[in-house]
Design a protein around this nucleic acid. Structure first.
Lengths: 116, 116
DNA sequence: CCTATATTACACCTTTCGGTTAATTAATAA
DNA sequence: TTATTAATTAACCGAAAGGTGTAATATAGG
């Protein structure tokens, strides 16, 4: 996943990472706070790795305060990702609209014995 | 990746698959048509696999017309994905707004020797 | 039936992912 | 200095991802 968009989507393609982001979108937290809800499912190094993926995607930035690493959410990369999705979702809807209009016109044409 | 959201994001986390979706958002196409732009980078079975990932995420549906498999885009799964991103992006912006307001009030307080 | 075209299935390989345990660094506190 | 807390690093593992080449499967048309 070299390109930024792929990195963003890949980072989001994991429920643990999404949960971490959801937590961070409420406000900053350090690593052990982020890890706490998952410590019955996985260990701390696993969380460290997840955070590194999120950092790599630019979705999280980590500071330092004594021995703690306060993490912050960064929603900026989401914009490009949302844009991509919306652009193609809309193209798809337009496509459906055109299909619908075509079918409708064809039906009318059949009923009236002509097109338009 | 068992949950639908993870499947959607994972499917989008690959530039080849995104290109296929982009192509399909313009209108239906069969497998070899979709493969054509990539045949110098990879083989047909690779495309078949990518299509299967996209199908698994519900982003593409495949029909059959003689020996061709016309593929269609389905933008429905994108809705949930966009919703997730927007929800947290907005929470993040609110967070920034609150921080900005706090800093501003603190500055005023410092200038006037009191808070509020 | 035979053949050509479109697509998939199968077996395999290499790299990445998501996790582990154990050791290590960094900073505070006693 | 020693101990404690927070977090990372390193080495390793199994499974999944993303490819390949080769065979198999539809389907249409002589």
């Amino acid at each position: 996943m070299r390109d930024p968009l792929s990195r963003t989507f890949a980072a989001l393609a994991d429920p643990t990472r999404r949960a971490i982001l959801a937590r961070l979108s409420e406000g900053e937290a350090n690593v052990s706070e982020l890890a706490e809800p998952f410590l019955d499912e996985m260990t701390l190094p696993a969380i460290t790795k997840h955070l590194k993926v999120l950092e790599g995607a630019g979705l999280v930035s980590k500071g330092r305060k004594a021995q703690w690493r306060p993490c912050q959410f960064n929603g900026e990369p989401l914009r490009e990702a949302v844009d991509w999705m919306e652009q193609h979702r809309i193209a798809w809807e337009d496509q459906l609209d055109r299909l619908g209009a075509y079918l409708k016109s064809k039906h009318k044409g059949a009923r009236h014995g002509r097109k338009k």
